[in-house]
Amino acid sequence: MRIVAVVNNKGGVGKTTITANLGAGLAARGLKVLMIDLDPQASLTKSFFTVDESQLFLSKLQTVGAWFRAPDKGRAQVLADLVFSPPRCNALIGKQGGWLELVPSDPLIINSESLIPGAVDNSGHIKPSKFVALHRRLAEDLSDPAFSKYDVVLVDCAPAFSLTTKMATVAADMLLMPARPDFLSTEAIQVMGQRLLELTKAFNQHREAAPAEAPPMRMPRVAVLFTMVQWYNGSPIDVQAQFINEVKALGVPVFDTLIRDRSNAYAASGRHGVPTIMAGGVAPEVRANLHDCVDELLKMFERL
């Protein structure tokens, strides 16, 4: 099983769109895919419903908030019980052999520390004795036999380096960072690198201070995927090409596939209740662009 956390401190870079389309694309290739929505906005969850359906369906679903509130004993089974199969999407996948499932988000996880029993002290800070177990919570539960049927787990993270994002980072084999090719996103990539170093150091210090069975944390593989790229004469426009090259010069692995700026095609997917890669009426070049991204991710899995 490969675990991929889709992260970026900066919002509006296409994290949820990329997660939904990669999940659907991988499932269409015959893989068993689980998506976990750890963004309190629940945009990934809503990606699999039409606008008219979303409120009705979401009101009936159990959300990931139940997992955060669960006591340690039997916690992995709580997470497994929250899994939901989007029927429309899986019907389109058909007989390819794969399927797509989802753990829905919950707006309350914006304060996730306060939901976890015994996680914080009276001042609202994480107890040092709980640090390692808390950050390995998702990793431990995904190692449960209940999740062994999945080939890939995609975790859509909030646009902040919060506890939920840290949990996903500790669990991940790979961090996928969607980013726009502009100054702010380039800066966010550098900031994320620093946050990863800080988390790795803090995790391993807490582990040494209170020896536990948990393995030491190692830096996961990071790959940047540029989104919203504007094209001219077969190439990104000059100003965006400059930022793409600057990130490559940092030594950060970058997808060769560039997700082009076709906001109308992605915005329309809400009418269909399925990701753009599966939606009807989508221009062939938009769908092909997304499939190229799926192909490249699969090649990265082979190198992990």
Rank of each mutant, 00 (worst) to 15 (best):
Asp256Met: 03
Arg218Lys: 12
Arg221Pro: 06
Lys248Gln: 15
Val274His: 01
Gln55His: 05
Phe84Val: 11
Ala267Gln: 13
Cys157Trp: 06
Leu82Phe: 01
Leu199Asn: 05
Arg88His: 07
Pro236Asp: 11
Ile126Met: 07
Ala223Leu: 10
Glu198Ser: 08
Tyr232Cys: 05
Gln242Asn: 14
Ser148Ile: 09
Leu115Lys: 13
Ile189Thr: 10
Arg2Pro: 06
Gln41Lys: 04
Glu213Ala: 15
Gly25Leu: 09
His272Glu: 15
Asp182His: 08
Val170Asp: 01
Glu208Cys: 12
Ala24Val: 10
His206Arg: 08
Thr50Met: 05
Gln230Leu: 01
Ala188Arg: 02
Gln55Pro: 01
Ser85Gln: 11
Leu115Gln: 13
Ala5Val: 03
Ala202Lys: 10
Pro181Arg: 07
Asn21His: 02
Arg262Asn: 08
Arg271Tyr: 11
Gly124Lys: 08
Leu142Phe: 07
Val191Glu: 14
Glu101Cys: 07
Glu246Trp: 08
Val153Tyr: 01
Leu108Ser: 08
Ala241His: 12
Asn90Cys: 04
Ala202Cys: 04
Val78Glu: 06
Asp52Met: 06
Leu58Tyr: 14
Thr200Asp: 05
Gln190Thr: 14
Asp106Arg: 00
Ile3His: 01
Gly234Asp: 03
Lys73Gly: 11
Leu26His: 06
Leu31His: 01
Asn111Thr: 14
Ala223Cys: 13
Phe68Met: 12
Lys248Met: 14
Pro284Ser: 09
Lys130Val: 12
Ile18Pro: 04
Pro275Gln: 12
Pro216Ser: 11
Asn233Cys: 07
Glu187Pro: 07
Gln41Glu: 06
Ala119Asn: 07
Ser54Thr: 15
Ala70Cys: 09
Ala209Val: 08
Glu113Cys: 11
Leu250Cys: 04
Gly97Gln: 11
Asp256Gly: 10
Lys127Pro: 04
Ala267Phe: 09
Leu38Thr: 05
Asp151Thr: 10
Ala172His: 10
Gly124Met: 11
Met167Val: 01
Asp238Val: 10
Ser54Ala: 15
Val33Met: 05
Val282Glu: 06
Leu154Asp: 00
Leu92Met: 14
Ala214Tyr: 15
Ser114Glu: 13
Glu302Ile: 01
Asn21Phe: 03
Asp81Ser: 15
Thr17Ile: 04
Gln205Ile: 15
Ile109Lys: 03
Met35Asp: 00
Lys95Pro: 08
Lys166Asn: 09
Val4Ala: 04
Ala288Val: 02
Gln96Asp: 06
Gln62Asn: 15
Thr164Ala: 09
Thr164Met: 04
Arg221Tyr: 14
Ile237Ser: 02
Val229Leu: 07
Val51Asp: 14
Val4Thr: 04
Val239Met: 12
Val252Thr: 13
Glu113Lys: 13
Arg75Thr: 04
Leu61Ile: 00
Asp141Arg: 03
Ile237Leu: 12
Arg207Leu: 15
Arg195Tyr: 14
Asp182Asn: 15
Pro145Thr: 10
Lys60Trp: 03
His125Leu: 12
Leu115Met: 15
Pro181Ala: 14
Ala28Leu: 10
Lys149Met: 01
Gly97Cys: 09
Leu38Asn: 02
Asn264Ile: 09
Glu302Met: 06
Val191Asn: 11
Leu134Asn: 01
Pro117His: 14
Arg262Gly: 00
Thr50Phe: 00
Gly118Met: 05
Val252Tyr: 14
Met219His: 07
Met219Ser: 08
Gln240Asp: 03
Asp295Arg: 08
Leu225Pro: 02
Ala265Thr: 05
Asp151Met: 10
